[in-house]
Design a protein around this nucleic acid. Sequence first.
DNA 1: CATATTTGCGCAAACGATTGTACAAATATC
DNA 2: GATATTTGTACAATCGTTTGCGCAAATATG
Lengths: 345, 345
Amino acid sequence: MDKKGRKRGVTIRDIARELNVTPSTVSRALNGSPRISTERKEEVLAVAKQLNYRPNQLATSLRTGKGKMLGVMVPTTDRSFFSSVIRGIEEEASAAGYSVMICQSHDLVAKEKQNIASFLGAQVDAVLASLAMEKSKFTHYERITEENTPLVLFDRITDNISVNKIIINDFSGAKKVMHHLFEQGYTRIAHLAGPQQVALYAERVRGYKAALAEKEIPFDPDLCIECTQILAEGYRAAQKLMGLAHPPDAIFASGDYAAMGAMQYLQERQIKIPEEIGIAGFSNESFTSLVNPSITTVDQHSLQMGITAAKLALSLAESPVQTAQTTVLEPSLIIRNSSKRKPEP
Amino acid sequence: MDKKGRKRGVTIRDIARELNVTPSTVSRALNGSPRISTERKEEVLAVAKQLNYRPNQLATSLRTGKGKMLGVMVPTTDRSFFSSVIRGIEEEASAAGYSVMICQSHDLVAKEKQNIASFLGAQVDAVLASLAMEKSKFTHYERITEENTPLVLFDRITDNISVNKIIINDFSGAKKVMHHLFEQGYTRIAHLAGPQQVALYAERVRGYKAALAEKEIPFDPDLCIECTQILAEGYRAAQKLMGLAHPPDAIFASGDYAAMGAMQYLQERQIKIPEEIGIAGFSNESFTSLVNPSITTVDQHSLQMGITAAKLALSLAESPVQTAQTTVLEPSLIIRNSSKRKPEP
DNA sequence: CATATTTGCGCAAACGATTGTACAAATATC
DNA sequence: GATATTTGTACAATCGTTTGCGCAAATATG
């Protein structure tokens, strides 16, 4: 601590003084410059270790413009999907010597703006983000690219902004669910769609419709209910569906929480799952394997998505001149009891 | 971008040049120094806005030694408890103009060390951490305090290191569960204890024993099984318990996942819950309200814990000279169907 | 009116690291 | 042995901000 109560660490100056050389020599030695003799390097390294020297990242970043830090923004960390993605990003980043700054938007544009300001202020080398659900004009994201900081969008993306994107094939995921439901003998399948301003939910609806079309089943608007993918809305949607003149014999929800809500309603009504009605969700939320019956869902390979996104972000951070690309990951169907009414073959 | 391809932002120099003053004047104006005239301040502010100036946090931090950043380390973000704590920390921090850097230890000491190095390198103003389960000597945590960075431990703490701590009253939480189970008429209550090197699990065992003692029920070692609090271990523990000559009539698990595992085993065995056996967990994990029957558990006021921890950390960051204190929060029992076998009064 | 005080701002030195250039000594070349 | 080349360090500027000190002009005080 100096006289002002601030903490003071060991600096290259201290090492330099110890060895009667200049800070520049120490710096070069530490960074393995070829212009420094091997013996000097060893001396410097020894003293550095002895003094427990730790480079001040801030100073290095300020000088070099590279902060060795990735900014990650997700709507929330307590969904298993996002938390896995983060884990993937972290693994990849820390392997490359980068640290990760995580922020949550709580699906609020205002918070997004705030977080972006934080990222930019902290001079992160790249930003990885999954968009908030709130409708917006994405101008705050443009400020990132304006400052020449690489931006990678994952999962919740938009076409309104031209950057690198990592998504899963939501269209295909939805179709896989539908094929499975057809295979199990369900024919009148309802869909609990997510907010359609979010691209991935729109994609899933597209997959739903495409699967119907393949079977030459006309699309029935009554069976496709748009709702935020939370438990209560799934419950209400199921209620509505069961009140129809021709209720569905299966419900495919665009999110696991809505699927769960629907299931709760059906169970309260003593409707047997999967015998009378089949249920499927999306995201492979951890509870889907715990509840009874376990819920059929779609795994999004979240860890892999994080790794892929991080790799891309890191490469962009090192060499910023690259053209925007979109990587599409293939999701996997996970069949569980909520939709299995045929015996195993 | 300069010639080397690095991004260059607007600096106070640019503002200064525009107004024909020096950077120091701009800096003072921006920081509201009383030594600058009101008109100058307005001019500076106007130009700053016009040029879209954003202070370089790195430079400020380097100069002042304060990074306006909190480091948060948790074992994992995908437990609802930790993710809520983080949310609380974030809210409090961002209200105070601080940003938050989140790292996960995955319960590995090696990762803890790495993360601490990241924190220290990033010159965070304070570190908030919940310990990994792995046994260790905590010397890596001491490096934080050695560098005079405030450290606040929450939830998973240790007595081996003298710092500020925020915990919930695990002893009392466990007793509350036990009282409730007694009240419901359960008398032979088993406990699935967590790893005893983790203080909070030891506390819960202490609460379990204390409640037994109050009822003058002798402690039966056969009924207290230590296991990591994951689903599979809970399942196995229940299996073991039901194989006893005198099996229990209730199982109180120190964690919700273990409780869930136990419940799955019992359900497979067609044992009725809560009629034949009562179940209770700990942590109020989100799935506990979704499964059937819903699981009685203990809420740890995670959001409040985060807020409290952040407040403490922030105050320490501002004025480092304070004596270590421990704050204890009171948990709440949440009674659900897995342990409710008496009709509501 | 002369001296003291305030007011408003500039100068320059930090913070800790990196890096282009310079420069002496050691080695190589003829 | 004189000159050219390499080798190992030092010097000093720089990244963007903050801040102690100094200094002039404006105002206040006697």
